[in-house]
Design a protein around this nucleic acid. Structure first.
Length: 242
DNA sequence: ATCCTGACAGTATC
DNA sequence: GGATACTGTCAGGA
């Protein structure tokens, strides 16, 4: 389908009858998810992702404000990672929410899923509608500045449903997201020259990572000194029950 | 100045 | 049970 001009997003929302400022965030998110979305597909060998602007600027602002209010991030052990013989503070803030009984493994430890806060339930419903998939878990990453980042990795844990996409909602500072083919990062004899795929993840955007992307490509969020603002990212997943 | 790459251990998993 | 994966930081080069 033809891509929409970005400007239309905000103006369509304003064109109808004036909405009272008391419109709940839940209702506004529900309405946003019911609108037709303009998806941009990005494909490469083994890579299949879809990108769209799910929330217009004003709604993305409100959503980010609600999350900044509602979400507390891990501290202590859960905010550290053991890499190459040393403990480090992870270069970002992190926490997770999910249905009762779910947990996930990160850096060798099992992290419990907290119960969903209200604002996150509304957001989950909107993302589920846009993605056409039900999710039972979300990992929230908060990048405090352009120095915060995440290294190359795959989301291919055994407990993830391989058939379900992972839906990544971005709020706040736009940042580059980089996919790298697994064969492009092998040691030299067998290294293949496959160019990385970069996508700018904008305020209010939704990225779907479809099968088999996460089995074939690594992804990362590199540091960007010229992007100093706060970014909050939510990756909705479907976990298999143990 | 900024970004990208490779080297760096030890534990866990298959 | 030998091979592979996983994580972040730092130094060096483009």
């Amino acid at each position: 389908m033809p891509p929409k001009k970005r400007k239309a997003d905000g103006e369509v929302a304003v064109a109808g009858a004036a909405r009272p400022p008391s419109t709940s965030l839940l209702a506004a998110l529900s309405e946003a998810a019911a609108r037709p979305l303009s998806w941009r597909k990005v494909s490469a060998d083994g890579l299949d992702v879809d990108y769209c602007r799910l929330l217009d600027g004003a709604l993305a602002d409100r959503t980010l404000a609600a999350l900044e209010e509602d979400v507390d991030y891990f501290t202590g052990d859960l905010a550290q990672v053991f890499v190459f013989g040393k403990w480090h503070d992870i270069p970002r803030q992190q926490c997770s929410f999910g249905d009762a009984g779910l947990s996930y493994k990160f850096s060798g430890r099992t992290v419990p899923a907290r119960p969903w806060p209200q604002s996150l339930l509304a957001l989950r419903a909107a993302v589920e509608r846009a993605a056409g998939t039900d999710f039972n878990f979300v990992l929230v990453n908060r990048y405090r500045s352009g120095a915060d980042h995440m290294g190359e990795h795959q989301d291919a844990e055994k407990e993830l449903d391989p058939a379900a996409p992972i839906a990544s909602l971005s709020l706040g500072q736009a940042r580059d997201f980089v996919f790298k083919h697994r064969d492009a990062r092998r040691p030299r004899p067998h290294k293949r020259d496959i160019p990385p795929v970069k996508i700018l993840l904008e305020h209010g955007s939704l990225l779907l990572m479809n099968h088999p992307t996460n089995q074939v490509w690594y992804h990362s969020l590199p540091a960007r000194r010229s992007c100093p603002g706060v970014r909050v990212n939510l990756t909705f997943r479907r976990m298999l029950r143990a």
